[in-house]
Amino acid sequence: MTRPFELELYGQVCPVPLMKTKKMAENLKSGDQLIIKSDFTRSVRNIADWAEKNNFRVSISEGKNGSWEIEITKN
């Protein structure tokens, strides 16, 4: 298994987190995992919706102090 890619998007609001996620996801190969860290709730939902529609497996976990971690894995 390859090491997961990470994208920290703290302090960034829509549409920037989704745009950066899409850009980074372009380079993922099947089985690759991208971990996105954000503190903007709306971006979490937007990223998860986009990922599901584009055939990624999605897992969301809520961290401390309003932070979120979204794990997407390319199928």
Results as ranks from 00 to 15, higher is better:
I47F: 00
Q33G: 05
F5K: 12
S59L: 07
R42D: 08
I72R: 02
D39S: 04
D49Q: 13
K22D: 00
K23N: 05
W50I: 06
Q33P: 10
N65T: 10
Y10I: 14
D32E: 08
T73E: 14
Q12W: 07
Q12F: 13
S30E: 11
N55M: 13
E6P: 07
N27Y: 13
I70W: 00
I36G: 02
E69S: 15
F56C: 04
L34E: 06
E6H: 12
L28V: 06
W68T: 04
F5R: 14
G11E: 02
E8D: 11
S43P: 04
N55D: 15
N75Q: 10
E6F: 14
V16D: 03
S59P: 03
T41G: 05
T41P: 02
K53R: 13
N54D: 04
L9K: 01
N27V: 05
E62Y: 14
K23P: 01
K23Y: 04
V44P: 04
G63I: 11
S30R: 11
P4S: 06
T2F: 09
C14V: 00
R3D: 15
P4F: 05
P17L: 05
V16Q: 01
E62R: 15
G66P: 07
A51K: 02
I47C: 01
S61T: 14
C14R: 00
S30G: 10
S38G: 10
L18D: 06
K29Q: 12
G31S: 10
A51P: 03
E52L: 11
K64Y: 13
V13R: 01
L34N: 02
K53I: 06
D49C: 05
G31W: 03
W68I: 02
Y10P: 04
I36C: 07
G63L: 14
C14A: 12
D32F: 03
S67C: 12
A25Q: 05
G63M: 11
N27E: 13
D39C: 00
